[in-house]
Design a binder for these strands. Structure first.
Length: 576
DNA sequence: GCCGTTTTCGGCCCGACTGTTTTCAGTCG
């Protein structure tokens, strides 16, 4: 079992315990452990061998024994026993917005409701409203939530790029209101998470109620979920859940910090504040001894008061950033200006829309020193992959183009298929003639974990391979990552000195933040590439950088922050 | 279930909104 699978079992266990009415602190221990495990840089099975599982914060003797049991048997006894006690559909009911463990249990005990469909029927037959603390409105709310849940295959999550555009549309509109002085994006969108569950906004206003009714009165509001005197929640066209929090100017810093989260980061800060004799909330810091509230108009001041350096929103996941700041060991996160070139770009020789020349010009405009044109290999027939003969012509065409440009070096490359058996699509003789070899898995995505892992590791043993593109193959809304043992892949990349890509396509973002951070921790170099198919895609680099920053990546961790000279030396490319 | 340079027991982050109440439990972020 890998860390993700173990974390999921703990999360499931927590929900079941919550339903059973166990102590909230016990259930929280499971969810805390699950979250920490998801963010680990090392596989639990490795930590187990080293005997260091108990060093993981939030994992004590009991959870450790359950982890070991899972590593050995794939499950743990307490989990299986609890599964037997609780109908499977209950957890799904608890995932309906507005229904928690208490309400789910009420329905189960009083109405015998075990599935979402049974709940839906009970609501339609007006059996809900007869229960204590329930009424007509609750029934309607439940039915609406169920409908939304069923329509929504992505579980309410949207790719960052879509959420960002919607947020921009809304903030532009709010900016027009005379009651709103300033609007800012907060939440996971500000932390640049790869997918976003809801859009969180904050607005400064001296007339909060008017600001809120302006917000809830937008044309594209499909449903008002709640609307109070300081906050409101809506469903916006396109099934976007949007929250607005209205604040006064003097608490803006506190509110922005609070509403940016993450929740776990905030909890950590509050504990830190408590240890210093303060109680932290979204309005400021309460001095426990004097009862006086210290307000913050900026986030910087808040972090400073806690004895921390400013933490970029991308870092605020409680993955060690608070400790790093206390020890003054925060990373110098990579920025757009550090990028010197793009090493994964397609031309119209395969499935790109632009000529090599247009790509070169676009790269020059962006201030790049080099660009690698990496068209598909012949196995990817649907993408017009290059035959051996066309690959040789491709190399010649790039040579000619290089004669034309002084400002940029065009590297001849390929995005070469790793075939089902791990062999590459071109012979070594051909690969040797290229400046750069990017490899990727495009077909046979259903292979089992063992086969897929072996396939990739085998490819890494080829000396000509430089970079692996989109290492897990995920595409939002289309397919999950293929089943692969990333620990082994990362180790093989390290052993064979291969570079792993952070693919910047907003539909891929692969490696994701967690895997990229692991790769870094293992000393594997990364490349942030766009996989451009039309020149506009070159600007997707922004999304790759977001992911890299979330992974604590610094310029030195990234291949394409190197100058042309450095990269030629590293990849053994002839100078001219 | 975890955790501890004040603790191995007694804590465990904090506040807003809703729907049902008549003072608050449940849920959420």
């Amino acid at each position: 079992m890998d860390n993700i699978q173990i974390a999921e079992k703990f999360n499931h266990m927590a929900q079941m315990l919550e339903f059973k009415g166990e102590s909230q602190f016990k259930t929280r221990a499971y969810t805390n452990a699950a979250r920490t495990i998801k963010g680990l840089d090392e596989e639990l099975k490795v930590l187990h061998k080293e005997g260091s599982i108990e060093d993981i914060p939030g994992v004590g003797k009991i959870l450790k024994s359950k982890i070991v049991e899972m590593l050995e048997t794939g499950t743990f006894e307490a989990y299986e026993n609890t599964m037997d006690e609780i109908p499977a559909g209950i957890i799904e009911i608890m995932n309906i917005p507005g229904i928690g463990s208490k309400t789910a249990r009420l329905f189960y005990e009083k109405l015998g409701v075990q599935t979402v469909d049974e709940l839906s029927r009970a609501a339609r037959e007006h059996r809900i409203r007869r229960l204590p603390r329930m009424g007509e409105k609750q029934e309607e709310k439940i039915l609406r939530s169920i409908v939304r849940l069923k329509e929504d295959k992505d579980h309410g999550r949207h790719p960052y790029v879509l959420a960002k555009d919607i947020a921009r549309e809304i903030t532009d509109y709010l900016d027009l209101s005379q009651y709103i002085e300033k609007v800012a994006i907060a939440g996971s969108l500000r932390r640049k998470q790869d997918t976003v569950g809801d859009i969180d906004l904050i607005a400064i206003s001296e007339e909060p109620e008017k600001a809120i009714s302006y917000f809830t009165g937008m044309d594209k509001v499909e449903e008002i979920l709640e609307s109070g005197t300081t906050k409101a929640s809506i469903i916006y066209s396109g099934n976007f859940h949007v929250d607005l929090r209205v604040v006064s100017r003097d608490t803006y810093g506190s509110m922005l910090q609070h509403f940016t989260g993450s929740k776990e980061h905030n909890i950590h800060l509050r504990k830190l504040a408590l240890s210093k004799g303060y109680s932290l909330n979204e309005y400021g810091m309460n001095d426990e001894s004097t009862g006086k509230l210290i307000k913050f108009s900026s986030e910087e001041k808040l972090y400073e008061e806690l004895g921390l350096g400013y933490l970029s929103p991308e870092l605020r996941e409680d993955r060690g950033e608070v400790e790093a700041s206390l020890r003054d060991k925060l990373p110098r996160l990579i920025e757009r200006k550090d990028i010197k070139g793009d090493l994964h770009v397609h031309s119209n020789w395969s499935d790109g829309a632009n000529t090599m020349e247009e790509l070169a010009e676009a790269a020059i405009q962006r201030g790049y020193e080099y660009i690698a044109i990496t068209d598909h290999s012949h196995s990817t027939g649907v993408a017009n992959g290059l035959s051996d003969k066309r690959l040789l012509e491709h190399i010649d065409a790039i040579d000619k183009l290089n004669e034309k440009y002084d400002e940029i070096r065009i590297l001849s490359g390929t995005e070469c298929d790793i075939k089902a058996d791990g062999k590459l699509d071109y012979s070594n003789d051909l690969l040797e003639r290229l400046d750069i070899v990017v490899v990727a898995v495009h077909a046979g995505l259903d292979q089992d974990r063992k086969k897929m892992t072996k396939r990739i590791v085998f490819a890494f043993e080829n000396e000509h391979v430089d970079i692996m593109a989109h290492p897990t193959g995920r595409k939002f809304g289309k397919r999950p990552p293929y089943d692969v043992d990333m620990e082994t892949v990362i180790q093989a990349a390290k052993d064979n000195e291969k570079v792993l890509e952070i693919n910047s396509s907003p539909w891929r973002l692969d490696l994701n933040d967690i895997n990229a951070k692991r790769a870094k921790e293992h000393g594997v170099m990364l490349a942030i590439n766009t996989d451009t198919h039309t020149i506009d895609h070159l600007d997707n680099i922004e999304f790759g950088i977001n992911m890299a920053r979330r992974a604590w990546i610094e310029p030195d961790d990234v291949l394409n922050t190197m100058s042309l000279k450095q990269i030629c030396s590293r990849l053994d490319i002839p100078k001219e």
